[in-house]
Design a binder for these strands. Structure first.
Lengths: 147, 147
DNA sequence: ACGCTTATTGTAAGAAGTTGCAATAAGACA
DNA sequence: TGTCTTATTGCAACTTCTTACAATAAGCGT
């Protein structure tokens, strides 16, 4: 598990323990091309660590998010998916076909600044997910006369 | 229930039925000063409509959101709260003390336009919730040396 | 390497949210 | 008003997520 050396110092230095469970979850996130639900993480992590509990996966995901190693992204109806933390970006999701598109943080950074100035809040570096219709679905919806 | 006359035409004209359950839920949202979880909506709606099911409340809230009569807002860990639809605004929430602040849509409308131009997506008029530290908590955190 | 401390895990029970299907009642028409 | 159609509800089983507490094992000091 090559991820260990990568993350272990970061965790240990803060007084947290590096457990096989955490490494297994981290490994799954680290090598997934797409965002995963807790259930999916659990299934995949079980492959390398049989006996791993769903409860632990939930707790571990929370833990990773709280320590900046993973991102938690709420989907349309509040269902959560997780991805390994990386260069900051956001997602647009098509309500119709489910297509997902990454957008760079630079496109929204001015808005963050504006909000911070207006509110006095210090915003945390969250991932943002916005919903809409992708170009493809806009066309087909228009053809069908759907709103 | 004064809300009936307000919403009934909007629903009926689209072929939906105006049921006592929907009116009860709508009434609760309409007269609440704060956003409510499904459980809270259920408790309050039961007061005026005993026997109302939690299942129905969940379904009704989804229905109202889908028809633009209510907004669904995901909190920190994906828990959902609902509020009656109204003039468009967004929320900043303090991770530390839970304080909530409304911000006008005008502050983020340029970002929406920028994203739409860059992506080709047609974004839906969603409520946005961002997290951070309120001015008060920034001060106290700094005193305590917390990050 | 061995034992100690306590963060972390597993277990089990519970809360929250979802789904399929039969029963109910809203709205339309006579 | 009474009857018909079917959208909507309630019920019950189910999945997903959360919590309390005792058992385990990570990391420290010897």
């Amino acid at each position: 598990m090559t991820c260990g050396s990568e993350f272990a110092p970061h965790l240990r230095s803060r007084g947290f323990r590096v457990t096989t469970q955490r490494l297994a979850v981290l490994h799954v996130l680290r090598h997934s091309t797409k965002r995963l639900s807790p259930g999916q993480v659990w299934q995949q992590a079980c492959l390398s660590l049989p006996g791993l509990t769903e409860t632990t996966v939930y707790r571990t995901l929370d833990f990773l998010v709280e320590n900046g190693l993973a991102w938690r992204i709420p989907l349309d109806k509040g269902h959560l998916v997780y991805e390994i933390a990386g260069p900051r970006h956001h997602h647009l999701i098509c309500r119709n076909c489910g297509d997902e598109m990454q957008v760079d943080h630079s496109l929204v950074s001015r808005m963050y600044a504006k909000l911070e100035a207006a509110s006095g809040y210090q915003l945390s570096g969250d991932h943002m997910t916005l919903f809409g219709l992708c170009p493809e679905c806009q066309k087909s919806k228009r053809l069908k006369g759907v709103t």
